[in-house]
């Protein structure tokens, strides 16, 4: 298993900027994100204040970012991180794919998570609520599970769970058709209201479920790493983009307002340089 100097989670302007700067400083970088870099960014119609790019669109800027990464030979690893483990000196990053990555430092750049927790979700996380089908599915062999999917990508997780569980309720939190079929899969079009032990309550019914898988675009920072200091949906950092955890840095929307591309890119740069300093200092010890 290779150990990277820096793992960058997120491929928006903050993550790209951090990865580029880290690569310039000859650090090995694992850049984890999505295909097309950032679906959120690609939806931005017009960006007026990114120096050098008058009246550009989010899509255009993302294409330029991709070209920049390509020119430096920085690959994007397509995965989603569901948990980061502080192993003392190194960090283990659990991917949704089931892959485990290892790095000596971590940069959090996955943007701000807007979805609020479902009542009961936080309390039951780890005892009936899971964020990772690949990680916890075997515990639900022969049992009934509910999957709350926030994007069509999660249908694959629902299908995977249906191979293990005896029954899968799938609740899409997005518009459009659900292409999931199987004798033991039931697609339910109602909103989850509350998660209880062994039960999922929606706005029009109740479902017996031993486990509830809540699959969002990204995991709230406070639940991603044990002990991380947060302020609401944001991660608390100092001016060097250092969080309260040694070796963990953050940049972009995740650190708070203003939510601006150029602010994220600037913070990504600071983040990478702080990270390089941290790595150099810890290597000396």
């Amino acid at each position: 298993m290779s150990v990277y100097d820096i793992a960058v989670i997120g491929t928006g302007p903050g993550g790209i900027s951090a990865a580029v700067t880290a690569a310039v400083r000859n650090k090995s970088v694992l850049l984890i994100g999505e295909k097309g870099l950032s679906s959120k960014m690609r939806k931005a119609k017009e960006i007026l204040n990114y120096p050098g790019f008058p009246r550009t669109s989010g899509g255009e800027l993302a294409d330029r970012f991709q070209a920049h990464l390509d020119s430096m030979g920085i690959p994007v690893t397509e995965d989603r991180i569901t948990a980061v483990y502080d192993m003392g000196g190194t960090f283990g990053l659990q991917g949704r794919s089931g892959e485990m990555y290892t790095a000596r430092s971590v940069i959090l750049a996955m943007g701000v998570v807007s979805a609020a927790s479902i009542p009961g979700e936080d309390e039951l996380l780890g005892s009936g609520v899971s964020y990772c089908a690949t990680c916890d599915a075997p515990l639900y062999r022969g049992k009934t599970v509910a999957v709350i999917g926030y994007s069509p990508d999660e249908e694959a997780e629902g299908a995977f769970l249906s191979e293990v569980a005896s029954k899968v309720y799938y609740l899409p939190m997005y518009k459009g058709d659900v292409s999931l079929d199987g004798d033991n899969i039931e697609v339910i079009h109602s909103r989850p209201v509350r998660i209880e032990r062994g039960r999922l309550v929606t706005d029009d019914a109740e479902y017996e479920a031993d486990g509830v898988f809540v699959l969002r675009e990204s995991v709230a920072p406070a639940k991603l790493i044990y002990g991380l200091e947060t302020d609401g949906a944001h991660v608390v950092t100092d001016r060097q983009m250092q969080t309260n955890l040694k070796g963990v840095f953050a940049c972009g929307d995740i650190t708070g307002r203003p939510y601006q591309y150029i602010k994220a890119a600037g913070e990504g740069n600071v983040c990478a340089l702080s990270c390089v300093k941290y790595l150099d200092e810890t290597q000396k010890m």
């Binding site: 483990y85 192993m87 003392g88 283990g92 659990q94 089931g98 485990m100 990680c135 075997p138």
Partner: peptide, 14 residues
């Protein structure tokens, strides 16, 4: 723990 569990493998040496 279990053999297939990633975080368990991370925890094992600790």
């Amino acid at each position: 723990n279990a053999t297939w569990c990633g975080p368990c493998r991370m925890l094992a040496p600790i």
